[in-house]
């Protein structure tokens, strides 16, 4: 018991929770923006992988994690362009396009990674170094919280900013109306296409950021199929949070806790099979879905392409 509560252990535990929660949070915030605007992106798994891979490659070549994160965001936007053009503009089936993006994202990142980085593993060696410009390392147990990289804080600020913008600004209102009743947005003089396009691009950038956070900060390396279903968990969290970004943040933390418990138990001496650790988040998600089944609500116009004047 004394082992469990030692300061170092708690520090590591909290750091793990945050490291696991952040990629999911960013992706789920992105998915929330898209869904609120009426676009369900099932391709988020692929978008995250593309972001993770581009972030990894850019960091490897430039040596800067900041530029790497930016690269991840750009990669995410690029991957989501297919959704923008085919679904928002042409009004094609979201499910099919989303799955196509996931499959292509999984396939191409795996092929490229295995082609470029397995033959020369030397280049991998320099990657896992993490620079942590400590913002404040004064608190005792809060070391875990306040010795994060600046990227962590930027991501938190970005999320809080989006939470405010979605709930309180004109932009947020038009985004939500594009998902609730696009025709009313149209009637009020707004452009459904522009609003949705903006939301989809932002959503891609955030999912890409989430992927890059995963490969750069959480695992500090890329591997094929790195996300392992994280994108789909992000969709579940989005459904359960009903468009409230603060709820997304809290649910992501719960997920982080669930993932961190496995390794923590191992430190204490319980050996938990790796398969159970992998399964745990999904079990928690399905339990959450069963318990909160009534409250998983999506916007009415979700998935419906908007055609002006069509009934």
């Amino acid at each position: 018991m004394s082992d469990m509560l030692s300061a170092a252990f708690v520090t590591v535990f909290i750091a793990t929770v945050i490291a696991q929660a952040m990629p999911l949070m960013l992706a789920a915030v992105g998915e929330t923006l898209g869904e609120q605007a009426g676009v369900l992106n099932l391709g988020i798994e692929g978008v995250m992988l593309v972001g993770a891979y581009t972030g990894f490659v850019v960091t490897l070549t430039t040596g800067s994690f900041w530029i790497g994160m930016l690269g991840g965001a750009i990669g995410g936007v690029a991957a989501n362009l297919a959704m923008l053009i085919l679904n928002v503009w042409l009004g094609l089936n979201q499910i099919v396009i989303g799955l196509a993006i996931t499959l292509i994202g999984e396939g191409i990142t795996s092929v490229l990674y295995l082609q470029n980085y397995t033959k020369s593993p030397a280049s991998l060696g320099q990657q896992p170094k993490l620079t942590l410009p400590g913002l404040s390392d004064i608190p005792v147990i809060g070391q875990a919280l306040f010795q994060q990289s600046g990227i962590f804080w930027i991501c938190i600020l970005l999320t809080l900013g989006l939470a405010f913008a979605l709930a309180r600004t004109n932009w947020g209102l038009s985004t939500r109306s594009a998902g609730q009743k696009p025709s009313s947005l149209d009637a009020a003089g707004g452009s459904v296409m522009r609003t949705r396009s903006m939301a989809v691009l932002l959503s891609g950038a955030l999912a890409g950021l989430g992927g890059a956070y995963l490969s750069l900060l959480t695992t500090a390396t890329f591997s094929p199929f790195l996300t392992n279903g994280l994108g789909f968990i992000a969709i579940v969290i989005t459904m359960l949070s009903r468009g409230r970004i603060l709820v997304v943040m809290i649910t992501s933390l719960v997920y982080g806790l669930a993932v961190a418990v496995g390794p923590a138990l191992q430190v204490v001496g319980f050996t938990v099979p790796a398969d159970i650790i992998k399964m745990l988040p999904f079990i928690i998600v399905i339990v959450m879905l069963i318990v909160f089944a009534r409250s998983s609500v999506v916007p009415p116009a979700l998935g419906a392409p908007y055609t002006r004047g069509a009934r």
């Binding site: 085919l86 799955l99 993006i101 292509i104 396939g107 795996s110 092929v111």
Partner: peptide
């Protein structure tokens, strides 16, 4: 890598929706 098959499958899906359109 064998995972390239996933890319082909994904492309079939994409072009299917485009052809449909």
């Amino acid at each position: 890598n064998v995972d390239f098959l996933l890319v082909i499958v994904g492309l079939i899906l994409l072009f299917m929706t485009v052809t449909e359109y």
